[in-house]
Design a protein around this nucleic acid. Sequence first.
DNA 1: GTGTTGTAGTTAACAGCGTTACGGGAACGA
DNA 2: TCGTTCCCGTAACGCTGTTAACTACAACAC
Lengths: 225, 225
Amino acid sequence: MTAATSPASPDARTGHPTEAGVGARSRRGDGDRTRQTILDAADRLLMESASEDAVSIRAVADAVGLTAPTIYRHFTDKSHLLFEVCAVHFDRFDREVIAPVAERVEDPIEALREMAHAYVRFGLEDPEHYRIMFMGHADHTPEQYDDHQILSTGCFGTVVAVVERAVETGRLRRIDGGPLMTAYVLWSALHGIVATKVAKPNMPGPAPTALVEAVIDANLHGLAL
Amino acid sequence: MTAATSPASPDARTGHPTEAGVGARSRRGDGDRTRQTILDAADRLLMESASEDAVSIRAVADAVGLTAPTIYRHFTDKSHLLFEVCAVHFDRFDREVIAPVAERVEDPIEALREMAHAYVRFGLEDPEHYRIMFMGHADHTPEQYDDHQILSTGCFGTVVAVVERAVETGRLRRIDGGPLMTAYVLWSALHGIVATKVAKPNMPGPAPTALVEAVIDANLHGLAL
DNA sequence: GTGTTGTAGTTAACAGCGTTACGGGAACGA
DNA sequence: TCGTTCCCGTAACGCTGTTAACTACAACAC
C-alpha cells in the first residue's frame, strides 16, 4: 500500500503506523487509536470478503500488524468487535439517511416510501453487516445489543414517529396495536426482502426495488378487491 | 437407552445397531441404513441444541457410534448433510400442511390466511432448520439447493397457485408482476416475521400470531385512508 | 474352499478457528 | 531510580471441517 513500510509485515518494527497497521508498539495512551485501527480493519475485511467467516481474529490481527491475542486487550470478544463494526454503519444510516428524510419530506407517506427504499438499499450495500446485526444467532449477540438496543440501532424509532404523524394527520388507518404495530408490519416486509437477498443473492425473483414498490403499494392500498 | 448394549460406546462391537447407533460394522448393502441413521441423529441434535454450531461432524458421529471421517462416506459435506436434514422438514411441511390447506379450504383468501399462520408456526417450531434453509450463507448452500430448488422446497409453488386462483376469481387485485409478484409480497412479509423471531427470539415486539394477522390485514385491505 | 473385490469403517493428521495463561518490555509517575 | 501500568508477544488448549492412508470384513466368482 504505502511506499514507506511494508504494511502489516509480521516482524516489521519499522517505526510508525502504516495505513492499516500499527507498526511499533503504541504509546501508553494510544490504546484507543489501536482500537480504532482494529475496528477499521475488521470493517474493511468484512466489506471486501463479504463473509463473516473470512474475518477471523487472526486475519484482523494480521491486517493491523498485531497478533491475535492482542485483539482481546481491546475487545472482549469476536462478537463484540463485529457488532461494534456493524453498529457504526447502522448508526450512520439512521443519522445520515433516515433522520434527514423524516425532516426533509413533509408528506409522511412519501417519507415512508423513501425510507423503505433507503433501508433496502442500505441492507444490500453491505450485506454482511446486515446479516450480523439482524440475522445472527442471539447467542452470538453481545448483551448491550440485546432487546431494545438493537431496535433503536435500526432506526426503528424514527419510523414509528413518522407512522404516528401519518396516523394523526389521517393518512394511515389506526390499527390494533397502534403505530408501533404498523411500523412492525412495514418493517417485517422490508426485512423479509433484505434478508432474502442477503442470504440468497442469486435466488430468482423480482428485483428488490420492484418488490419494495409492490410491498408498499400492497400495504397502502390493499390487495383485496 | 436400550438395555441390550450401551449405545454409541466407542469400542463396543457388541453386535446389532442400537437405537441411534450403528454398532457392528454394517453389511455390504446397509450403507443406506447408516446414512439414514446419521440423518436422524443430525436432525435430533439440531432440534435439541437449537444451534447449528452444536451439530458438528464429530458430534453427529459420536451420536451414531461412528468416527467423524465415516460421515464423509455418506455425505459429501457438512452443508449437504444439514440441508438434507432441513429439506425433509420443508418437504413434509409442504406435503402435510400447505398442500392440504390448498385442497381443503375453498376460499382462496381464507386459504392464504391459514397458510400464513401455518408457515410462521412451522418456521418457529424448529428455528434452526429455518435458519439453515433460508438464512444461511449462499456459499454454504449445496448446489442442488440453489436457485429454483430452494423455492420449490419452500412450498412457494403452492402459494402461487392459490394466489392465481384468487386473482382469477376476482378476490385479489392483479398487480404489476402478476400472481408471482403477489406471492413474493406476501412471502416477504412472513419471512420477515419468522426471520426476526428466529434470529432474535427475545427481541421485544408483538407476538408473531398478532403480527401475522396485522400483516395479512394490511396487505388485503391496505393501511391508507 | 479359495481368492478377489468392493464397501464400511478406522487411525492419524493438517490447517484453521476462538480463546486463555503467562511473560517481557516500554512508557510513565514518584 | 524504582515501581506501576499499559501494550503486546509466545505458547498452548481444545475445538472445528476435512483428507489421506490403511484395515477389517461381507459378498461374490471360481
